[in-house]
Design a binder for these strands. Sequence first.
DNA 1: CCGGTCATTGGCACCAGGTATCAATATGAA
DNA 2: TTCATATTGATACCTGGTGCCAATGACCGG
Lengths: 201, 201
Amino acid sequence: MERLPKRQRHQQLSRLIEENPFLTDRELTRLLKVSIQTIRLDRLELAIPELRERLKMMAERSYDSVRSLPLHEVIGDIVDLQLDKSGISLFEIRDEHVFSRTGIARGHHVFAQANSLAVAVINDEVALTASADIRFIRPARLGEKCIAKAYVRSSGSQKGKAKVEVFTYVGDEMVFQGNFVIYRSAGVTEAGGGEAHENRH
Amino acid sequence: MERLPKRQRHQQLSRLIEENPFLTDRELTRLLKVSIQTIRLDRLELAIPELRERLKMMAERSYDSVRSLPLHEVIGDIVDLQLDKSGISLFEIRDEHVFSRTGIARGHHVFAQANSLAVAVINDEVALTASADIRFIRPARLGEKCIAKAYVRSSGSQKGKAKVEVFTYVGDEMVFQGNFVIYRSAGVTEAGGGEAHENRH
DNA sequence: CCGGTCATTGGCACCAGGTATCAATATGAA
DNA sequence: TTCATATTGATACCTGGTGCCAATGACCGG
């Protein structure tokens, strides 16, 4: 008995299903040239669930992520907010935020947390980022919890610009620092490429 | 015959399935207090596919979006790249990039395009954003095509820092401008919060 | 050569969650 | 009453499986 074929087939099976989870057992028989029973035994050994379960898992995952992705709104959980004064937000670096080769968070996520907070802390109908001066002090890595603290330095409470300083820490290490200038003016649509915010109290 | 109940039920059915696509017909009978045949006639009239088809569609959608989201790698299509000199990338503002209320692109996407390009244009094993000074000149809006142009100003070809200037246009209007300082050094993991890049030629 | 152990295959019953179709009943309006 | 529509019931069939039992093949040690 060639013992190899089985291990090889298992590897192939895993690979096939990983790169196309929509394959039925019947389709797999054609690809691997073994009986459907063998396919099923293999799936059993490899703990690969049946097609319908795979689809369900994918659907659930995407459903959850749609529900849990305020990625398009504010990035990071804002845990404290004193309008026109200061704010704090938390953001955990997860798989989807890092560059897989190095485990280092992509810069724009760290930036986005700070930017979201800077915009949220401004007490106006619409707030847009006008400019920013940012520094990545050290890389944030997979699993780290980033704590961003924003301080409004110059509120410009009449319509105009506000300056917001943001510091992002992992533990007591600073990973990011940024100075943001935020346009504040209801209905402004001509300047600023940032986002309006939803965090009105 | 109460004609309303049917329309009402149809509305309820649509709403129920929209907010929980994982419901089987049997579960729906309990929720709507009608027979399973009625549920099936209703789905037929409303063109709501069966559970398994719904799950499959969701799985396909999420699978496609995983495939088509280079969102985690380089943002924007790099159409021209002269290492250590200059580069051009294109990025179209789509639904998922804008703040729905205003149709204005979220700042971090515009930033991310520029950041990705600044990192890509640097000819080194690993390149990380160290700092940046950015300006959002005017908002980018849904449907607009952003053209980012990067110029390496000070290459620092020995290991160290490189300065990259990026201008982003929509048509001939400038929407964004940024000065990036990029760390260049193989194996550097102590500074820079940006991303290493995949665009080696 | 013989038995033992895997690996592979076949066959059958069964299941969920349906589709498709036909028939029976209820209900209300003309 | 009669007709149309709505609802329900019943049955056959489908896909993509699980679970179980049995038959066959291959190889190895004694």
